[in-house]
Design a protein around this nucleic acid. Structure first.
Length: 509
RNA sequence: GCCCCGUUCGUCUAACGGUUAGGACGGCAGAUUUUCAUUCUGUAAAUAGGAGUUCGAUUCUCCUACGGGGUACCA
């Protein structure tokens, strides 16, 4: 194999939001490229104009930027092989299709969709599945069965036609896959796939081979769903006379749904409580909204880490990887062959890890906008202190308010179960006295408050828990939250006393 | 139907002929804690089944089962 520069592409079609499995494919391509000092290219495969969805391309670009993948070339950044949108490259493909026809490796076919439909039905009635291929093509309406004049006449008359590959009758086609090894297929099982559609655009098969060649792609890393058509692509490289420039193939295992079986699909996510899309997406025609990782409170680094581990592992016991570390460790050899199920619990764990590792200052920037939306005034210092106290108790970014609201707004009601469990008959009296103790303190730090509380419970001859549990209900509104005295100090003496007063008057058993 | 790919704890996976089959998430049990989390410790839990090859198979081969993918003028 020649040591040509590593160049890989991610080539989605803009038919909707990018699936999380697609994000993983892009990630693996990126990791592989960067590991080998190569280029990472974004090519848009929009040869099916009927499936075009407005906004999808922008979504793809934004989603990949969110997870931190940077392209060296692509629709949005340009590059030496522009354009990177296949619909803008249409003249290119025809030349290659013509080349195949000249070499007698492809032919014109004039069968109408209706005719094909009828033939299929006939075959099915006889329990013989129809395949447009070596066995049947001589019964069809194409340039192999029609005379040269007839063909020329039809084309001149503007009759619609497609160009089909002429699959060899009896050949063994070998695909070398970097993940699966050697895959052999008998050509007789392949069909004469359409390469060029009657609308003047190529199908995926032709377009991806031509573009990968023209863009000097060295490795094609894509989903396993492409494995069955890989032999066709190998044939195309051969018939186009560019077999020496054929990229190496690697077919990735699929992402499966966590329950039952099957490929993870659009509907599964919101049904099972996790997103299948990186970013939230609103369908332009149905207005249906699908949730995204970003909006659900996931940290992009966590998504990258967990995605990397769905089908790959470093062979060590390290679990947490930055993008840089992933690039260093990644190799296709360590990509597994079997499909992987998405595991929500592990995803939560990853997110929790990354959330806890983020600095308070970083998180402050993330949470700040929320304060404006909620109309709450506070200082950065105060918010940072709160973040420090609650961040390791959160799983998602979106948990912040739920875990910290009482730092900003005094409780107005009290959690029923907490009151039932922790609020005793003597709690009001006890807390009233304790509030007086706090009120009299000249300096109200966490430590001093702790000392004061200690003395208080000793004098009263009660356990610390007895006083603290009720105090917590008064301060937080529920039996939950960070260290008691740290909270008190942060809230300040006046607020502490005020909340105790309010609770004493308002908690109802 | 046909073709292709796959199958190790519930899940993600390690072990590339010789291990008490390892780790992580989750589970369970403890510890810590004034609450709830976090954290820590411990623990249960797997080679789909059957034939071979071999002194020895999770590992190699074949068959079966199961799962997935493909079979469009979609990608």
């Amino acid at each position: 194999m020649s040591e040509k520069k590593v160049r890989v592409r991610f080539a989605p079609s803009p038919t909707g939001p990018l699936h999380i499995g697609g994000v993983r494919t892009a990630l693996y391509n990126y990791l592989f490229a960067k590991k080998h000092g190569g280029d990472f290219i974004l090519r848009i495969e929009d040869t099916d104009q009927t499936r075009f969805v407005p906004g999808a391309e922008e979504y793809i670009v934004e989603a990949l930027a969110w997870v931190g993948l940077k392209f060296d070339e692509g629709v949005h950044v340009g590059g030496p092989h522009a354009p990177y949108r296949q619909s803008e490259r249409r003249i290119v493909y025809r030349q290659f299709a013509d080349r195949l026809i000249e070499n007698n490796h492809a032919y014109f076919a004039f069968d109408t969709p209706e005719e094909l439909e009828n033939i299929k039905k006939q075959h099915e009635a006889n329990k013989q599945p129809f395949q447009y291929g070596p066995a049947t093509r001589m019964q069809m309406k194409n340039s192999l069965t029609l005379s040269k004049d007839e063909v020329a006449q039809k084309i001149a008359a503007g009759e619609p036609y497609v160009i089909r590959i002429k699959i060899p009758e009896n050949e063994e086609i070998i695909v070398h896959d970097l993940i699966r090894g050697i895959v052999k297929v008998q050509s007789a099982l392949l069909d004469d796939k359409v390469l060029f559609k009657s609308d003047g655009l190529p199908t995926y098969h032709l377009a991806n081979v031509v573009d990968d060649f023209l863009m000097q792609i060295s490795h094609v890393i894509r989903g396993e769903e492409w494995l069955p058509s890989a032999p066709l692509h190998v044939l195309l490289y051969r018939y186009l006379g560019i077999e020496n420039d054929m990229p190496q193939f690697a077919h990735l295992p699929l992402l499966l749904k966590p329950d039952g079986n099957g490929k993870l699909s659009k509907r599964d996510g919101d049904r099972l409580g996790f997103p299948v899309f990186p970013l939230q997406w609103e369908d332009p025609s149905s207005k249906e909204i699908s949730s995204g990782y970003r909006e659900s409170g996931y940290i992009s680094e966590a998504v990258v880490n967990l995605l990397a581990f769905l089908g790959w592992n470093p062979g060590t016991e390290q679990e947490l990887f930055s993008m840089e570390e992933l690039i260093q460790s990644f190799s296709l050899e360590r990509v597994s062959k079997a499909g992987a199920k998405f595991d929500l619990e592990k995803a939560k764990w990853f997110n929790h890890q990354y959330l806890s590792k983020k600095s308070n200052a970083e998180l402050l920037e993330i949470f700040k906008p929320m304060f404006i939306i909620k109309g709450i005034c506070s200082t950065d210092d105060y918010i940072e202190c709160v973040i420090g106290l609650v961040k390791e108790r959160m799983i998602f970014i979106t948990d912040f308010w739920e875990k910290s609201s009482f730092f900003f707004i005094a409780p107005e009601s009290f959690d029923e179960k907490s009151v039932k469990d922790k609020w005793k008959d003597n709690s009001p009296a006890l807390l009233t006295e304790l509030a007086a103790v706090f009120a009299s303190m000249p300096e109200f730090t966490a430590e001093k408050a702790h000392d004061a509380a200690n003395i208080f419970v000793q004098e009263k001859q009660i356990g610390m828990g007895q006083a603290m549990n009720a105090l917590r209900v008064a301060i937080v509104g529920a039996a939950t939250g960070p260290d008691m005295f740290t909270m008190l100090a942060l809230l300040g003496k006046e607020e502490t006393v005020r909340r105790i007063d309010f609770a004493v008057k308002n908690v109802k058993k």
